[in-house]
Design a protein around this nucleic acid. Structure first.
Lengths: 354, 354
DNA sequence: CACGTAATTGTTAGCGCTCACAAGATGCCT
DNA sequence: AGGCATCTTGTGAGCGCTAACAATTACGTG
C-alpha cells in the first residue's frame, strides 16, 4: 500500500473520529444514498432518466451531509467557470457603479458570477492587463465599461481571444456594444433650449478622449448648425463638479451666455455653484441642462433639467449580449443603442429679453 | 486501446493539423523545454532549486506557447481559489461603491480576485443566500459591506463557516469589523455647531435599523446632553436627497431651528433645497452639517460643512483584516475604528441673534 | 578519491468532478 | 413468449495541476 493511498484511506476511515473535518464529496453522498457517484451527478445537473425515488434519496443524502459540489473540479472538467469579468474605469462614479450593479444582477439571474477589476486609467495597457488577469482566473467572457475611446480600441485589439462586450459608449465595429444614444440626447437638450428662444447654447463638454464627450458635443453642434445658430467655443471639464465650477466661472463672465448644456450632472452642479457666486440667476439669466439624471439632480439649486440615461438597463443589456455570445450566437456585431429621455425641471427658462 | 485514450492521443497528435486549437498545457511546455512538467510547475511557483538556465528554458517555452496555467486545476488541488467575495447592499451609493473600489484594489495587490454580490435588502436571508452562493463558487473569504444592524447579526450567525469581515459599521463582538468612528464624527459636528453659539442642534437621522444612524444619533445626543442643551425630536430619512428635502420642509416651519446635523450629505442636499425654497438662508438663518464628504459636497449651495469618512481606506483595511485571517491570524476579533475628519465649508455660521 | 550532503530533476498519485460508454432492468409490440 | 426500444444505473478514464517521494547529479571535504 502506498503512502498516499493509505493517507486517504485513513482520513476516510477516521470519519467517526471527528477531528478530521473533511468536506463531504460526491462519493460520500453516493455511498449514503446507496447509488453511484454518477447518479449523484445526474441529480445535481438535472439529467433525465433518474427514477424519482432515487432522486429523492440522493437529495436527502445531500441535505444530510450538507454537501456542496466543488466548483473547481467541475470547472476543470467542463471548462466552464460560470464566471464573467467586468473591467471598469472608476466604479466610484454613479454611472459605472450603476452599470456594474445592473450587470451583476443580470449575471446572477443568468447563473454567472462576476469578478471585477477596477482601473485607474483606461489606456491600452491597463485594459489589456486587466483582461489578461481575468482570463487567467478562467472567466468565460468580459464586459468592459469603457467610456474612453482609447479603451474601446484597446478592447477591439484583443477581442479575438475571449468574448467581450463593451458598454458605455463608443463606436467600434469590431466589438459588440451597448450604449445610450448620446448624440440624440444632446440634440434633444440643445433643441429644447433653442425652442425656448435662446439665441444659441453654450456647451460644457467632457474630457477629450471620451466617446461620450465627443458624441454629446457632436449632437449639440449639429442642432446648432441645423438651426443656423452660432456655435460658441466649447468649454470642457473632467466630469467633476470642481471642473464644472471652474468652467462656470469663465462662462459667467461672458454676458452673452444665456443657456448652457453640460455633458453631465456633476459638472452642471459645479456650474450652478459658480453662476450663483457670480450673481447670475438660474434660470432667470442663464438656463442649464445636464446629462445623466443622477438621483440628486432634482435637489440641486435649482432642480436640474437633464437628460436621463438608464445605467442599470445599460448594464443589463450588455450582459444579455455577452450571454448570447457565450451561448453561441456567432459574434453578434451588434451595437445596441438605448434612447435617453429628457427630464424637465427648473433650471431652464425662456431666454431673457435683452 | 480504449476510446478515451485514443481520442486524447489523436488530439495531441493532430497538433500540426491546426484545426484543433487546443490550449497548451503544462505538459506541452515541459516537452518543449525538455523537462518534466513538475519542473515547469516549480518555475511557475517560484520553487527553489531550479537551475537558472533550466528556468530560462522553461520561461522561453511558456512565452513561445503563450501558456497560461489553468486556475481550476490549480484550485482543485491546492484548495485555494485566490478569490474573495464581497456582498454589498446598494453599491450604487457613493459609500459602498468606494468601499468596493478600495477592497478590489487591496485584494488585487494581495493576489486575490474579487467576486461581487449586490443585495437589494440586507435581511438575514438575503445575506445568508449571497454568502452561500459565493461559497459554492469556492471563494476563500467574504467581506460584507453591512451598514445595517440586521445584516451584521446575520453575518454573525454564519461566521463560523468561512472567514468573514464586515465593513461599514456596527458592533458585533463575533465578527471582525472595520468602521468609521461615527459617534465621534457626530460629536465633533454637534460640538462645532454648539461652539458657534447655537442654543441646540437638530438632527436629521438615517433610517432605523442602520448602525450608522444609531451611532451618529447617539454621538449627537451625547454632546447635547453634556452641554445641557435641549434635545429636540429627531427627524429621519432614508439617506436620499428626496427624504432630506421632505424633512427639510418640516424643519423649515419651526422657527427655533438654527442648526441641523444631517446623517449624510445627500440628505443635507435635500435639506438645503427645502430650506432655500422656504426662504430660510443657510448659513444666515440656519447652519447645516452633513456626513460623508462626497465629492460634490463642496459645490452645494452653499458648500457643505461635513464630516469626512475615507471609504476606500475602510475597504482597504477590511481587506487587510480578511487576508490576515486567511493567513492564519487566529480570528482577530478586532474592531478597527477609523477616525473621521471635519471639513469646514460655508454652510455653517454663528447663531443668528434673535 | 571515496563519501556524505545539498542541489536539481523526475515519477507517481491523486484533487472531485463530468463525459462516454456499457450493462442491466423494464416495458411494449407482434 | 421473443425481440427490440427505452429507461435507469454503473464503470472507467481523464480534465491539468501540485504534493510527496524517489532518483540523479554536483559539490565539497577529509
Amino acid at each position: 500500500m502506498r503512502v498516499h493511498q493509505s493517507t486517504r484511506e485513513l482520513r476516510v476511515g477516521s470519519e467517526a473520529v471527528g477531528t478530521e473535518q473533511r468536506q463531504p464529496v460526491m462519493a460520500d453522498v453516493a455511498k449514503l444514498a446507496g447509488v453511484s457517484h454518477q447518479t449523484v451527478s445526474r441529480v445535481l445537473n438535472g439529467a433525465p432518466h433518474v427514477r424519482p425515488d432515487t432522486r429523492e434519496r440522493v437529495l436527502a443524502a445531500i441535505r444530510e451531509l450538507d454537501y456542496r459540489p466543488n466548483s473547481a473540479a467541475r470547472a476543470l472538467v467542463t471548462r466552464r467557470s460560470q464566471t464573467l469579468g467586468v473591467v471598469s474605469f472608476d466604479s466610484t462614479l454613479y454611472g459605472p457603479a450603476s452599470m456594474l450593479d445592473g450587470i451583476e444582477r443580470a449575471a446572477r439571474s443568468a447563473g454567472y458570477f462576476v469578478s471585477v477589476a477596477n482601473l485607474r486609467s483606461l489606456d491600452s495597457r491597463s485594459v489589456q492587463e486587466a483582461v489578461d488577469r481575468l482570463r487567467d482566473q478562467g472567466i468565460e467572457g468580459v464586459v468592459v465599461i469603457a467610456p474612453q475611446t482609447s479603451a474601446v480600441s484597446a478592447v477591439a485589439r484583443l477581442s479575438s481571444a475571449i468574448p467581450i462586450v463593451a458598454v458605455g459608449s463608443g463606436t467600434q465595429p469590431r466589438v459588440p456594444m451597448v450604449s445610450v444614444d448620446n448624440s440624440s440626447g444632446a440634440q434633444a437638450a440643445t433643441r429644447h433650449l433653442l425652442d425656448l428662444g435662446h439665441r444659441t447654447v453654450h456647451h460644457l463638454a467632457g474630457p477629450p478622449g471620451w466617446q461620450e464627450s465627443q458624441d454629446r458635443r457632436d449632437g449639440w453642434r449639429r442642432v446648432l448648425e441645423a438651426a443656423g445658430a452660432p456655435v460658441p467655443p466649447v468649454e470642457s471639464g473632467d466630469w467633476s463638479a470642481r471642473s464644472g465650477y471652474e468652467a462656470g466661472l469663465r462662462l459667467a463672465e461672458q454676458a452673452e451666455v444665456t443657456a448652457v448644456f453640460c455633458a453631465n450632472d456633476h459638472m452642471a452642479l459645479g456650474l450652478l455653484r459658480a453662476l450663483h457666486e457670480a450673481g447670475r440667476s438660474v434660470p432667470g439669466d442663464i438656463s442649464v441642462v445636464g446629462f445623466d439624471d443622477i438621483p440628486e439632480a432634482g435637489y440641486f439649486t435649482p432642480p436640474l433639467t437633464t437628460v436621463r440615461q438608464d445605467f442599470s438597463e445599460l448594464g443589463r443589456r450588455a450582459l444579455e449580449l455577452l450571454v448570447a455570445e457565450l451561448a453561441g450566437a456567432t459574434h453578434p456585431r451588434t451595437h445596441v443603442q438605448i434612447p435617453p429621455e429628457m427630464v424637465l425641471r427648473r433650471s431652464v427658462g425662456p431666454a431673457a429679453r435683452r
